[in-house]
Amino acid sequence: MNFIREKVEMVNREGKKALSVFLTAGYPQKNNFTETALNILDAGADMLEIGIPFSDPLADGPVIQSSSQIALNNGVKMKDIFYYSQNIRSGSDKPLILMGYANPIKKYGITKFLNDAKNSGVNGLIVPDVTLEEYDSFYSNLTKEIEIILLSTPTSPDERIKYIDSLSRGFVYCVSSTGTTGMRDNFSIETIENLKRTYSLVNKNKMMIGFGISKPEDIKNISAYCDGVIVGSRIIKSLAENKKIKETLKTVSELSDACTGKY
């Protein structure tokens, strides 16, 4: 199964870089999350990354940290993640990816987790605190249907990126710069150079860039060095600031336009 890859290729063939939107499950509200997610897909997102809330999200900046805490306060549990996934899947055939920290997944049971994910129509999984070093000890009984997506960063040496590319499925998640998720001012020359380097090393997989992408201009600056982009904090912030989802959907469609080369 290469579901995610094929979808990215399909979007690319239409002259667009794939746009993945990250949402924290059950944020801002627990009850209408499915509706929010489907609206965002309709507005131009080509895939969805659903964040499993965690009390101590090490790789995340303040915006996603706070959304994660609010989701937990809303009472979001692991069973809700699969419930959302099922419902989103019945309304859309775009790729669904779960992003979650290792401990809640371990606690749920990795085999059961992968099975339930598969049965809910999930296609991919990102666990930011499980790298090559712990890959074998963490993932037991891998199921073919769930594609495990690995991350590369500016501090990953060339040889390591090649290894990440060989093991990753779905795509390689290229972290644009060091630090946590969240908005940054601009992409520096150094950052761009690293994106070029990484894109030239990732050959087996498609490559999506995430961390710090918040405006159409960002996408313009990096679109030559990727097959798609991931936007999270910008969307979460918009959901936090606007009572009506309309503003957020407008942002999504602007970002989607930028992915097709329209600014």
Binding site: A102, E133, E134, L150, S152
Partner: peptide, 21 residues
Amino acid sequence: SKGKYGEYGGMYVPETLISAL
């Protein structure tokens, strides 16, 4: 050699920190 004490320990960190470790 993997930083484990039996099954405990290891390096469960984001990729950015691996090279520094």
